[in-house]
Write a protein that binds this DNA or RNA. Sequence first.
RNA 1: GCCGGAGUGGCGGAAUGGUAGACGCAGUGGACUCAAAAUCCACCGGGGGCAACUUCGUGGGAGUUCGAAUCUCCCCUCCGGCACCA
Length: 829
Amino acid sequence: MPYDFDSIEKKWQERWSASHCFEAETDPSKEKFFCLEMFPYPSGALHMGHIRNYSIGDVLARFLRKNGKNVLYTIGFDSFGMPAENAAIKYKTKPHDWTLSNIAYMTEQLKRMGYSYDWKREAITCLPEYYKWNQWIFLQMYKRGIVFQKEAPVNWCEHCGTVLANEQVEEGCCWRCKNPVTKKNLKQWFIKITDYAQELLDDIEKDLGGWPERVRIMQTNWIGRSEGAKLSFKLPELDYELEAFTTRFDTIYGVTFIALAPEHELVKKMHTAMSREDAEKLDEFIKKVSSQSSIERSDAKAEKLGFKTPFYGINPVNGKKIPIWIANYILIDYGTGAIMGVPAHDTRDFDFCRKYNIPIIPVINPENGEKLDGATMKEAFTEDGIACNSGEFDGMKTSEAIKKMIDWGEAKGICKREVNFKLRDWLISRQRYWGTPIPFVYCDKCGVVPVPEEDLPVRLPEDVEVKEVGHSPLLDRPDFLNTTCPHCGGPAVREADTMDTFFCSSWYFDRYCSPGDDKRPFEKSDVDYWMPVDQYIGGIEHACLHLIYARFFAKFLTDIGLTEYREPFTRLLTQGMVIKDGAKMSKSLGNTVDPTEIVKKYGADTVRLFILFAAPPNNDLEWSDRNVEGAHRFLNRVWRYVEENCENLKAYGNKIISMDEIKAPALRDFKRKIHTTVDSVTHDIFDEKQFNTAIARLMELTNAIYSLNDASPEAWELKREAVNTLLNCLSPFCPHITEELWEMLGNEKMLCLEAWPAADKKAMTLDSVTVVGQINGKVRGKFERPAGMSKEELEKSILSEPFMIEKIADKEIVKVISVPNKLVNIVVK
RNA sequence: GCCGGAGUGGCGGAAUGGUAGACGCAGUGGACUCAAAAUCCACCGGGGGCAACUUCGUGGGAGUUCGAAUCUCCCCUCCGGCACCA
């Protein structure tokens, strides 16, 4: 009977489903394990990246179940978002219909792969049952002042017709469509993630030891804490105090200009106070700068543009008059949007001053004694050195000067220690239709009013026609827009913006713990039991997006008493990309491989095996048709052996022969192979998550089974033990074929419910070892010796080998190193 | 520019101080077959040698060590992240 993967796989998928064996129950008496994968966006079909992600997760889920853990393993769909709107225009359908039909298709694909999900817990974020709770959580945030509206220069993607959060701008471009992002002044909804900046940072060190170093560094940089001081310059002409943040207060004596971001509020003030002629020039300058895209403005190599205002500020340490400039390289949303310019010790300020002939005053000299001269310096001196031109601080080393000068400044009321973060508040509103409606109404009398909790959800109309990108169909829906004010009962208009979809994905794992609850987002006792996630698996591209937002949510939900955990993901595994012909598989490159076709040709077990064997999970994985065939060949080999030897294997049932009873060396080796395999596969799966080496060990065991030439009853007992072990250990990777063969061997209980085999330490001990004879560290000979010889015995034994004696014949032995069971190294002259 | 990570056969990769190249792919030779496919057996880093064997070999250079792919320092290359963050 050939290996008919198609019917075998369908058969077992049905059996698993009918037996409900993967459904999880909250049960505090059992040790839990929450295995989570980043849920997919229902773009239409699964791609190989998904298959890789979910195959990794399924191995862990199945392995841990076998190891007695109460495993929560489920899936859902992150199903709000722009592609649905684009597809609606393109295919003349509705985002809702398109999304749900994609979900149906992708669900089929997931089931066809044999993943052991608890489908009862599935979460679909675009359904009102789910997004109602987005709105509810949003209102809780609002109540606690974490949600607020403000007008600010925000990232605007013209192509997508919406604003974007900072995290969603990559190198000045939209993370979705890759088009340049510009700044636009708009009133928007924000979430105060910055309230948690310090905690988000501290907990990386404290609690995220199970995360890859790389992701921890990326988040640390993104949060971007910097310590310094805030100081203010008095502007006597305008009766204004201008605040600036600096990390280098020790260079305060070197300030030769002050620079403002073009968006700074003082710019307007100055505009009205300056002459008409100057004001016109300023307008021209602002126009020029604001026409620059974010990439142009944020490129470090871009030309620095400045405008000299007729005003000055007073340096608080020495009373000097400092000219005020407006410059394009000053960012409005970092610090105070104004800087003290110290060209001698800051590269950017240096470039700016050379361009506009602003004086340069060095206030630090290098430690090598060199004296800097502002007129001739070729570049800014940014290293530590010795203070000069700085009054009483002259001669101090930089590290000391920073501390002492801030102390002094604080005492005199000139400055104040301050910590600044690069992380900015999360811009949450989107000018899109296909998202969670923001539960607020605008009332002429009462202003911005939250929708009462009992009126949730604010439903998104589903029967819409999306006409063009950038125009939300909600704006054409008076039935949606027009409502009554919950406060005064008068006419009111609904907020037509929807939430960033990252809001949905920030708590979906909590919902998995407590699916279908219609009274609350989740039941606390369920979440308390299951959370945090023990193993999270997904792509690295979310390092500074989803993974930061979700961490923030965890902290917020705990602060309002809904949960107990402060970090959602204990361990994180970031799998590499799937590559073909040297590039990431993508539709635009046309180098994709459709999982459905491969499954049709070889079966799900082969695809899973290939994808797990071809590379360790963190590495990129090169697609190879040849290697897929190789994986298929291996499964055929396993199939053939069990099938051809089925009668014998069945005849010699389940009597385990212990190592003590086995005499023949070949059989002792064989028994040993079984148990060393279990031991290393267990270690590779759980401790290392190195599935490729685990599979290699199982291939070795298969080879050993094939090569054992012994038909004695004793040998058959051992072969049966080996086959049982092989099938059991292979089952998390290839669950269908192993179930089928397991059943073929007469087992009644499903293999997925069978406990993971235990490695018998006694069976792993070696009888004999190959000892290497080295001379000066180079391998010269290999000798069989009984295992467990002492250092001295071994040394003596190897030194008396004729081969070794000959090699060292006319040389003087300086030293001998003997490592039991391993080697003897003879050092000679 | 700053911060990470990685360089091992023809290829994917093993080995984290002790036999470099497990396992697989590709390749070569052979068996079976009328033939092919499938399967099985043998070989499979480079040089030298009929062979036993020998020598070189983990990006390059130095160092530590009896012994280094592995630890330390310098350099080169590639990949990733951040990037006018004051």
